[in-house]
Simulated assay, not measured.
Amino acid sequence: MAVKALVAAVLPPLWSNRVLPALGLDIRGRTAANTGFAAAYTLVFRGAPNWLSPRGLRAGAIAAGLVVSGYAAALAVPATRRHLAGLDDRGPAVHTVEWTALHIPGGTVLTEELVYRSTLTPLLEQAAGAAGTGLGAFVFGLSHIQPARAAADPIAATVAITGIAGLVFDRLRRDTGSATAPALLHLALNAGGALAPRLARRLVGGRR
Rank of each mutant, 00 (worst) to 15 (best):
M1W: 09
A2K: 13
A5N: 10
S16I: 00
N17F: 13
R18G: 13
P21Y: 05
P21K: 08
L25C: 07
D26H: 02
D26S: 06
R30F: 00
A32Q: 04
A33E: 06
T35G: 03
T35M: 14
A38G: 04
A39C: 08
A39F: 11
R46K: 04
A48R: 15
A48W: 09
P49F: 01
N50M: 01
W51R: 12
S53T: 04
S53W: 10
P54N: 10
R55K: 14
G56A: 07
G56R: 14
R58H: 10
A61T: 15
G65V: 05
L66P: 01
G70R: 01
Y71C: 05
A76K: 09
V77H: 08
V77Q: 09
P78T: 07
A79Q: 13
R81C: 07
R81N: 05
R82Y: 03
L84M: 13
L84T: 06
L84I: 07
A85H: 10
A85R: 11
L87D: 05
D88F: 09
D88A: 15
A93R: 15
A93Y: 00
A93H: 13
V97E: 04
V97I: 14
V97P: 00
V97G: 02
V97A: 15
E98W: 12
W99K: 00
W99T: 00
A101H: 04
L102V: 15
I104H: 02
I104G: 00
P105E: 10
G106V: 13
G106I: 11
V109C: 06
V109T: 11
E113C: 05
E113S: 05
V115N: 08
Y116R: 02
R117H: 10
P122K: 11
L123S: 03
E125K: 14
A127Q: 02
A127R: 01
A128S: 06
A128R: 12
G129R: 01
A130W: 14
G134D: 04
A137N: 10
A137S: 14
G141I: 12
L142N: 01
S143I: 01
S143H: 07
I145M: 05
I145Y: 06
I145R: 04
P147M: 08
P147L: 06
R149C: 04
R149K: 13
A150M: 00
A151T: 04
A152P: 00
A152I: 00
D153Q: 15
P154H: 10
P154R: 11
I155F: 06
I155N: 06
A156K: 01
A157D: 12
A157N: 03
V159H: 12
A160K: 09
A160F: 13
T162I: 14
I164T: 14
L167V: 15
L167W: 07
F169A: 12
F169H: 08
D170V: 00
R171G: 07
L172E: 07
R174K: 13
S178R: 12
S178Q: 08
T180W: 05
A183D: 05
L184Q: 11
L185Y: 08
L189N: 03
G192L: 10
G192H: 09
G193Q: 12
G193L: 10
A194N: 00
A194M: 06
L195T: 07
A196H: 04
R198L: 15
L199C: 03
A200Y: 09
A200E: 06
V204H: 08
G205M: 08
G206C: 02
G206W: 13
R207D: 14
R208S: 14
